[in-house]
Write a protein that binds this DNA or RNA. Structure first.
Lengths: 353, 353
DNA sequence: GCCATCCTTGCACGTTTGTTCACCCGGCTT
DNA sequence: AAGCCGGGTGAACAAACGTGCAAGGATGGC
């Protein structure tokens, strides 16, 4: 993977500057001058198809940036309300209510990936959790050139067996590539079997170095896990947790997790025994990051989201419209008809949010 | 929805907020989530056509902003060189060399109109010259909401007889509309017949008020006139000047004008008699504006542009590629095969400009 | 030097998008 | 009430666009 990644960094910027220059020129002609691709092809002495591809490249590589400004008089009621109620900056992604959870996640992740660039800058350390949301995001990142940035993995992971979830290394690499950042992997499982192993590991110098990075990070990016929802977060599908673990979580009142660390509805974590074996950062550490961006999609994660908000983990929230509406609609949970239960029994094929 | 026609200002912003909201949502779905218009039509319960129109509206009204970032390692050699040689920020508009002057002007104007938004802000006074370049720009402005801004006409004008050049009032109105700014017309001819009339007029209180505004303006926007070029600027077509005037200009060494005020190649204006009858601001006044944006297209205007640069009139230059290249290529003029000559002989039917 | 491989190109096709047209609907005039 | 707008709508068509594919060229290993 080394030799492969060593060069492609230059691929877009230097080794083929001609391509980038052409793309830039094509973008000018297309987006600033409204020429047709045909006309551009003619000006560039190439074919229309190539122009189409050049423009795709220009968009995908961040040469062209498309942003949407709400006129200041209607700045999305919901975002406004979330800001007031939770003191959290919100991006509400419009997604129709009837969309499937997969669609919803994809669309939120796509939008989130495009928004992310605004938060990332040079000389920053960016902490990234491992999960299905991050995985989906990683596929759509828009590159942005930064210097001296670092991407650090927040929690361990096994390999992703679930469809579409990508290995942690691959995921991190994508983020790193997109921002030209160094990548710090965290090669541990999501959960240790034995708390003692974790403690021992935490004393290792290599681990300490990584934890140090986590403590100094400027931006944290994560989703929330929702162990008791109809569509459990991938962490719960990968076989990381046993039935006994779920029962423990249920008994201890956990409603969700951020980067494998579980919390209750009120945001507290103390006494949740599984956390002894988790690999993600303690919330006290997480909260040191000035920017903490949370990406959530699906009403199933509502309770988790509420908990994460209560824990003060979030400074910026990217969330689908339905969930956002539910979030502001009523303070308590009127969502789940049944009370918590082990997810083992759930096989309901209902895919409505 | 109260009174639809009563207040056209509200038409786009408040009286039909539904349309703007739909446009906004469509834009999100299209540009952030890459949905097809079909899909969006379905989500919005309308037809594809309407979505297409909605998106057009979103772009035309500035809801969607498309910007192009050069990667910092290749910031257009030419722009860089112009910055170094003339201490002027440049936007070079790519236009093929074989394009007609009309095309060239249109394309530069289109790009310029889209760039302009970056320079305009609230609480500003924006001075605008009257000419073919400004006219072309006025047709493509992207609205940007500002408060308490003012658009003030820099020089007088007759009515535009040349095809495609629009009345000064219409031109100003377009700028004013685009930025939600008040408009201050300057109802005088481009040139007075008698210097004395001008002086008298300048003593009028209403005139003084306008001149006051000009002195306090934050942004000036203008083209350059090129009286001795193959394609004379409109000012020279409208019958404003007589053959004798041209001869005088020629004798006195004028190479161009900004807002009806003429200058020599070295930027000097003293002793150019026509300026006694001009209606545009003295360069000393013009130079008070912190931002002075000049839009130029066509090599014919090269000498004028050089003069305007020498006069220190320009802080930001928007120029087509060919002219930019010529500008940096050689210090002197190697452009015009023939020396200056009176344009009276020119009746080339090559279309307006 | 030669081959395997990867990347790029232009064509051809199917899809997506812009635009014209006929039509409808509410408002205001006569 | 009839009649004329101006603005908006969807159907249909033409233009513009994206992409799979096969061919051509470069690159690097052997």
């Amino acid at each position: 993977m080394n030799e492969q990644t060593a060069i492609p960094v230059e691929d877009g910027t230097e080794s083929v500057p001609g391509k980038t220059r052409d793309a830039l020129r094509a973008a000018h002609l297309y987006y600033m001058q409204d020429l047709t691709m045909d006309a551009i092809a003619h000006e560039l002495h190439t074919s229309r198809s190539s122009v189409s591809r050049l423009l795709s490249h220009a968009r995908a590589s961040g040469l062209v940036e498309i942003s949407i400004h709400s006129p200041l008089d209607l700045p999305s009621r919901i975002e406004q309300e979330i800001l007031e109620r939770f003191a959290v900056g919100a991006h509400v992604i419009p997604v129709p209510d009837h969309a499937s959870d997969v669609d919803r996640l994809d669309r939120v992740a796509l939008s989130a990936a495009r928004i992310l660039g605004r938060y990332v800058d040079s000389n920053q350390t960016i902490g990234i959790a491992w999960g299905s949301t991050m995985s989906a995001m990683s596929r759509h990142l828009v590159p942005k050139a930064t210097h001296n940035s670092e991407v650090v993995q927040l929690n361990g992971a096994g390999n992703g067996r679930t469809t579409g979830i990508v290995y942690a290394s691959e995921l991190l690499r994508r983020f790193g590539d997109a921002f030209g950042a160094r990548v710090q992997q965290f090669p541990v499982p999501a959960f240790f079997d034995d708390p003692e192993t974790r403690r021992a590991f935490w004393r290792e110098r290599s681990t300490r170095r990584l934890l140090d990075l986590q403590e100094r990070m400027d931006v944290a990016l994560f989703g929330v896990g929702s162990p008791f929802a109809e569509v459990p977060s991938h962490v719960y599908q990968g076989g990381y947790l046993e039935r006994a673990d779920y029962e423990g979580l249920s008994r201890e009142g956990a409603v969700g997790d951020v980067a494998t660390v579980f919390y209750r509805a009120d945001g507290s974590t103390d006494g949740i025994s599984l956390n002894e074996r988790a690999t993600g950062p303690d919330f006290a550490v997480l909260r040191r990051a000035p920017r903490r961006i949370c990406v959530v999609s699906g009403r199933a994660k509502l309770a988790s989201l509420r908990g994460a908000l209560a824990a003060g983990l979030i400074t910026d929230l990217i969330v689908d419209e339905g969930t956002a509406r539910a979030l502001v609609e009523s303070p308590g949970e009127q969502e789940s008809p049944g009370e918590r239960e082990s997810p083992g029994e759930r096989v309901s094929p209902k895919d409505r949010e």
